[in-house]
């Protein structure tokens, strides 16, 4: 990968995961977005990967020499937008 992406560059802002940590996860066997997420927590924060998922896909594609469609995407669980515990505690109408 090009040198302009230093290992200390942040990729996932919510969980503060760097390029280096993602490269290491790939070196340890991560093959797709879910693999990186399970090893590093990239994409598990408040925004649920809305910002970083594409960058994680780019790093995977570059490191593994695969196409973007082979890098996968995150599994999604509700709530798909952040809500407060207060709202949840109010029960469901």
């Amino acid at each position: 990968m090009e040198k302009k992406f230093d290992d200390d560059m942040l990729v996932c802002r919510c969980e503060e995961i760097t390029v280096g940590e993602i490269r290491q996860a790939i070196a340890e066997g991560a093959l797709d977005v879910v693999g990186v997420k399970r090893r590093t927590r990239a994409g598990m924060g408040l925004c649920q990967g809305k910002t970083c998922e594409k960058m994680v896909q780019q790093i995977l594609a570059q490191e593994l020499c695969i196409g973007p469609e082979q890098t996968g995407s995150s599994s999604i669980r509700p709530p798909v937008r952040p809500i407060t515990f207060g709202t949840l505690a109010g029960g469901i109408k």
Partner: peptide, 27 residues
């Protein structure tokens, strides 16, 4: 108001914004 979930048999889960600024969950 945000759609936060979509469950089987077309149940749509919504965090509804109320006029008083509060939020409530509605299915």
């Amino acid at each position: 108001s945000a759609v936060i979930g979509l469950y089987s048999d077309k149940i749509v889960s919504i965090e509804r914004g109320l006029e008083n600024g509060e939020k409530e969950l509605v299915n």
